[in-house]
Design a protein around this nucleic acid. Structure first.
Lengths: 200, 200, 200, 200
DNA sequence: AATGAATGAGCCTTCATTCAT
DNA sequence: TATGAATGAAGGCTCATTCAT
């Protein structure tokens, strides 16, 4: 059924199928054949829309990060104060979209293989840098310089660490809980420094 | 040349070779043949000392966690106050042994595949639970109940998150920096609650 | 955009593209998609103008042989003496048209696969037989019967052998040189027998 | 059955199977699986003994040329006069070993694909150059310089051309016939020049 | 205890061919 | 007439695992 404009549709189908497959079979067993089957297409078609399997996996990771970015930007749009902005970033990380077991599983699996792929590790680093920059931008207005840097790094690490535990199933899959925990980290730092304006 | 008592030696050789191979080739390319070669033995021998490849990987992960455990127990032995004990646990996580690039890479790779292996995910959860319990045990003495729970969970997540960033290469490989950051998380919570004894 | 009378145009386009593709990518990598792309058409269209890929390749070979035939017939038209006619045949084999690298490459590649295709091997044999018959026809007038047969076979083999070496790149791509060499073969035989009219 | 010293045995087995397979199925259909089956081994083993399929095909071609070389060297050992030496080279090309249909088919198929492989085209050119050098060495003693060069080139081309026609099945598979035809080419040149010592 | 040759299943990828438009 | 999306069958290659020695 040769229709035009299938590209974005098929690509999304296949990326979703890749996420599902990684969740269901594991990255090592997420074969092209299985992903294609889950997407309801033939194995061969994958190479029409992606250069190769790595390109599909890379695109999958990128899609995850793009979704996260969109979510964050949206939330930042309505935030007014620096604190609200920091919360917005945290909330985006644990939003409904990001929080499905499939997404979290895929996220960890792809992180786990990022070291071996230049493309993959590059976008992961870009994401990490951007998260850090965003957090730092607002925390600087709320904390002394060095404390802001530390808080930004800690917040980012905390988000990743909570995700990691979620992916392993050793944490309850409750977004609000994780949001609260991360906010608490920020709150405590803010409170600590506002109670003691001289810094640390 | 049949020697007796080779078992522990060979197993350690192979586990070390597995860690090195995962670091060098990635988990997906850490084949039995490559691991054996790095260990200086023949591919066939692996199945004399391990049930199969999964067993080798599981044993590798277990070895990593056992090392961590030993480190922590040693440090806890000399700690006196609850705060010292919490610091000991943190320090163990970022000790020299745990901090080699090879170990960190292997750690993330195996975490990333834990979901697909019952044995693997079991020991990972046991480790997570134990870490949480240890932290909680001492934090309870320093913080209100709910704050202690939150701090324990946050500390554990922070450690994992920092490891994750290390494995990805988006954090500088400086143990002291990570220790300080994690201690800071604890310190801030302790300060916050001692400054406000009414709890939160 | 349905046009009429496209058949001969498209067929020639595709045959030329096939020759180019064999030269550029090798027969094994001259895929339908690549040939179509080089012809500036879609892959699907190939099966409108040719039964299948083999039919395209067969038609390509036939086109090469037809060109050669036309060339030979033209030259034979102006030849007067038997010797001139033999020269005409030789000259046709090394004429400008036949001598492009693309044509020579395709020629060898298709020869190399002729054994596996009935159609292909049939036209190749027809060409061989015709070449032999043409040569023999005139050589008979110049040489004793058995010498004529031998000379005809030798001349044909020499032409093919020179082509082969051209295709492999181990001979310089100079038509005149090859014409001279082949004429020399004939000349020597003629001289030998005219010097010794008793036959051999 | 892990025996030592299997390498040369298996390699020969596989090379022979490759020749047979090319003959039976054609180069394009001589798959690794088919070659392995014909050799009575599993498909996977091929990559134990050859880098990849191309390496097997290259080694096959090399084996053909080595056999030819050995044959020629042996015959040259007993040749005394330059003429005998030229005959020896011709005879080697059409010896029993070289004359099996399988060998001839493989020869043409591999020649036909040589242009696309650096390794393949290299050894083919080396063989061509050596053949030419050998012929020239002795013809120089029998003919004027330029005639010797021409005769050497012609003889080599004639041999290849006869092979080509054999591979296509458009010549009768009679070694003696081809030897005679090639010797005749040489003889005629020698006679021509000895009858006319002034050269041409 | 140890080797490494051998197997055979499975994976990624390519490609001739078909077909809805 | 023409497109190019889609299929499905192989093909080359890798690899965990077995086994004769």
């Amino acid at each position: 059924m040769p229709k035009v404009g299938m590209q974005p549709i098929r690509r999304k189908q296949l990326i979703d199928a890749a996420i599902q497959s990684i969740h269901e079979f594991g990255l090592a067993n997420a074969t092209v054949a299985r992903i294609a089957k889950k997407a309801g297409v033939s194995p061969g078609i994958v190479h029409h829309y992606f250069e190769d399997k790595n390109d599909l996996l890379f695109s999958t990771m990128r899609a995850l990060l793009v979704d996260l970015r969109i979510d964050a930007v949206t939330r930042l749009g309505t935030a007014r104060t620096p604190t609200e902005r920091v919360y917005a970033i945290i909330d985006a990380s644990f939003s409904e979209t990001q929080f499905s077991p499939e997404v979290i599983t895929a996220w960890l699996a792809l992180y786990g293989s990022a070291r071996r792929s230049d493309r993959l590790s590059r976008i992961v680093r870009i994401y990490a840098r951007r998260l850090h920059a965003n957090l730092l931008h607002d925390l600087r207005k709320l904390l002394p310089a060095d404390a802001a840097v530390r808080a930004a790094e800690g917040t980012a690490a905390l988000i990743d660490g909570l995700y990691l535990r979620l992916a392993l199933g050793s944490a309850r899959p409750d977004p609000d809980h994780h949001r609260a925990l991360t906010r608490d980290y920020v709150d405590t730092h803010l409170a600590f420094h506002s109670a003691d304006p001289s810094g640390r």
